[in-house]
Nucleic acid binder design. Structure first.
Lengths: 146, 146
DNA sequence: TATTGTTATACTCTATAACTATA
DNA sequence: TATAGTTATAGAGTATAACAATA
C-alpha cells in the first residue's frame, strides 16, 4: 500500500476518532477544554487557576470561564487557598470523580471495540508501528515542517 | 500491548496530526473550513453555495462567509449561474489550483516522512490494520456509541 | 409556494488589557 | 513591584430566522 493511502486512512481515523470523542464529551455535558481541565485535576490534585492555565495552555481569563462553568455544573468547587489569600484551589467534587471513572471505563470499552479482536502478536506489532508514528509526528510538529 | 495503550497512542497521533495539518493550513492562509471548501471544488468542479453547504455540513449562511473570505484572498470567484439567476457558481482561480497542487505535493512528502522507511510488506500489513480501524470507527460514529 | 443567497443577530470558545486584592 | 483572579472588550467560527429576488 502506498504511503499516501496510509496517510489518507490515518486522517480518516483522526477525523472519526475526534468526532466520536467530542460527541461523547457533549453527551456528558462537557467540552474538550472542560474535560481536559477535569483530567488535569484528576491527575495532579487540587490546583490554582494560574497553574491550570499553564498546564492546559489557556489564558488565565479562559480558565476563569471554564471553572465558572464547571462550578455551575457541580463538577468542581473553589476553595480558599490556605497559604495565599489571592488564590483559589480548584478541586473535583465526588460527582466529577464518579464521572471520570465512568469515562475511564468507556475509554477501556472503546479500546476493546477497536482492538479487542486482534491477537497478542498483531497488537504488539501494531503498537510498535503506532508508537514510531507518534514519535515521528512529535518531531515534525516540534520542528515546524516545511 | 494492551488495547488501552494502543488507543492512547492513537489519540496522541490524532492530536499531533491535527495540530500539524492546522499549522500547515494557517501557513498557507487557510482555515480547516476554507481548505475543505477548496478541496470540495477541486474534486467536484464549480458548485452552487447551497450544494457546498450540504457537502461540507455547514449552514448556507456560513458558506456565504467562507466564500467571501476565499474571494477576498483570490482563491475562488463567484460566477453567475447559467440556468438559475438566484444562484452563483463558485469556481477555483488558477492561483488556488496551483496552491492545491503544492498542498498535494506536501501531502505526499508528509506521507513519505511518516511511512517511507517501512518495507512493502509492513506497509501492507499496517494498511490493513488501519483500514479495519477506520471501518470500525465509521460504524461507531454512525451508530451513536454508548 | 419553494429555493438561493444575504442581512441581522446570537452563541461558543478563545485572547489581550486594565483593574482589585493581595503578596 | 509582582502575582492571582476578575471585569471589559474583541475576534474567530458557527448557527437560526427573517427577507429579497427568483424559480
Amino acid at each position: 500500500m502506498k504511503s499516501e493511502r496510509l496517510l489518507d486512512t490515518l486522517l480518516t481515523i483522526t477525523e472519526a476518532l475526534g468526532a466520536d470523542m467530542d460527541r461523547y464529551l457533549r453527551d456528558n455535558g462537557l467540552t474538550t477544554a472542560r474535560a481536559h481541565l477535569l483530567w488535569t485535576l484528576h491527575r495532579g490534585g487540587p490546583a490554582k487557576q494560574r497553574d491550570l492555565a499553564a498546564a492546559l495552555g489557556h489564558s488565565p481569563r479562559n480558565v476563569t470561564t471554564l471553572v465558572d462553568e464547571l462550578v455551575a455544573a457541580g463538577h468542581v468547587i473553589r476553595r480558599d487557598h490556605p497559604g495565599d489569600r489571592r488564590a483559589f484551589l480548584v478541586e473535583l467534587t465526588p460527582q466529577a470523580v464518579t464521572l471520570l471513572e465512568v469515562m475511564a471505563a468507556s475509554h477501556v470499552e472503546l479500546a476493546g471495540q477497536l482492538f479487542g479482536h486482534l491477537d497478542a502478536r498483531t497488537r504488539n506489532e501494531l503498537g510498535e508501528q503506532l508508537t514510531g508514528l507518534a514519535q515521528r509526528l512529535a518531531t515534525l510538529v516540534g520542528e515546524e515542517r516545511g
